[in-house]
Nucleic acid binder design. Structure first.
Lengths: 234, 234
DNA sequence: GCCGGAATCTTACGAATTGTAACAAGGCGC
DNA sequence: GCGCCTTGTTACAATTCGTAAGATTCCGGC
């Protein structure tokens, strides 16, 4: 069975359809391509796409009214792809109910990112919380839980989570103390910088780091820290 | 009182803030402008914007990590405004949780249209109904009853219902104590805020939360609460 | 290698925050 | 009045997290 989100592509240029479906399938989506609005509408009777990509310059139909019907009457998620770059075009497209408006020429990577951004929002796929996997661990930032490879859970606090998140967002890069202070401590009111050490120490304990030989959170004497680990967000 | 959606604008250039707030207010939104991330974050403790416009090039903070936190941790709707036009910038911005990415220079009309497009989608303007389903539970606000998956009923009181409704209307978003007080206790003379804790404690009991490890109502030490749960109003 | 000072780690402690049980005040029906 | 429910208040327990202080590690100079 297949749970991957379905993206339909309605565009009369085969090259564009191919480019989009390549990129989308590589990104893990299912795709269906159509060159004409009538075919597309016929297909809609039997399937419900998660996202519809629609080119406005269709040969057989006015794209905008199609968008309007799709988006507002059927509540579908619609992304317009168009060669018309005027602000006015974009505004009317969006007001007619489109969720996004992408201008040709476009980069498929951006289309993928924009589709993902739509699917992430509530009401969509049980893409519940925010989790990151790294070196056998799974960090669930929504539940404030750290799961090891055996499935055992360890809770972490908000402050620990802030540090962990900072690391996971910038793996394998030096993170200076100053940057940390700024990024976490937030306000100017300067607390002791030992506070940071303690947070990291507690985090290391939860990650079961060997004090003599930490594998994930490395200290760079006089500079800061580096998080080593293969991070995968999902 | 005012029901217009609230849009926050975080940008260090006063001219841009002015342009955006002009356009947005004309379009019927309420706006709040900030020049620095720290001020913005401080304000978040007592308000919940519907949409956050964030300029990535902030003087006092790394904009991307702010976006990530806002979008994923707080479930806010975030639109990035940036001078960086590379596809790669846009892709990473969107992957970190932004809902949209607008490039400077922009036309305020398009910003308005894009914000409207976001607000149109379900999940906004908390559709308040009589019943809400979430994670196996069904809350009947008309009958003051909570039904579990087996069909067993538990009554809840008016005060408990107020808290529950607040949570169900803003799932996955940080709800500060201040906001709660305001939203529930009313403006009236200040009762001890411990009353809030007790209400939540009682609600947790009825939801059969594990005290050591609550799944639905999470406490964020020093900040407030987050309700995690897939909510469906009807 | 050895030493000294600085940077960092760890542990303990305590202030502030939050959880919850117990009690009290008020409301409502009988 | 009496019992029951709701809700705020209080008291005390548990948790979080910064601070302090001693221990340890690092690194340059000798």
């Amino acid at each position: 069975m297949n749970d991957a989100p379905l993206v339909t592509i309605l565009d009369d240029e085969p090259a564009i359809r191919a480019m989009l479906s390549d990129a989308l399938e590589e990104a893990g989506f299912r795709t269906m391509g159509f060159s004409r609005a009538t075919e597309f509408e016929a297909a809609l009777k039997s399937t419900t796409p998660d996202v519809c990509l629609v080119d406005l310059s269709l040969p057989d139909r006015d794209g905008l009214s199609l968008v309007h019907r799709l988006a507002l009457e059927q509540g579908a998620t619609v992304i317009i792809i168009s060669g018309r770059a005027q602000v006015q075009d974009r505004v009317t497209g969006l007001e007619l109910g489109a969720d996004d408006y992408i201008i040709k020429p476009f980069d498929p990577a951006e289309v993928v990112a924009r589709i993902r951004a739509r699917l992430r929002k509530p009401g969509f796929s049980p893409q519940t919380g925010e989790t990151a996997r790294f070196n056998g661990w799974t960090a669930h930032f929504d539940r404030y839980m750290l799961t090891d490879e055996t499935g055992a859970d360890t809770p972490f606090s908000h402050a620990e989570g802030e540090v962990l998140r900072l690391f996971l967002e910038r793996p394998k890069r030096l993170i200076s103390r100053a940057m940390m202070q700024e990024s976490l401590g937030g306000a100017a009111g300067e607390s002791f910088d030992r506070a940071m050490d303690v947070r990291i120490s507690r985090l290391r304990t939860k990650l079961r780091e060997d004090p003599k030989n930490p594998r994930l959170i490395k200290t760079i004497y006089g500079a800061g820290y580096i998080f080593l680990g293969e991070v995968n967000w999902s």
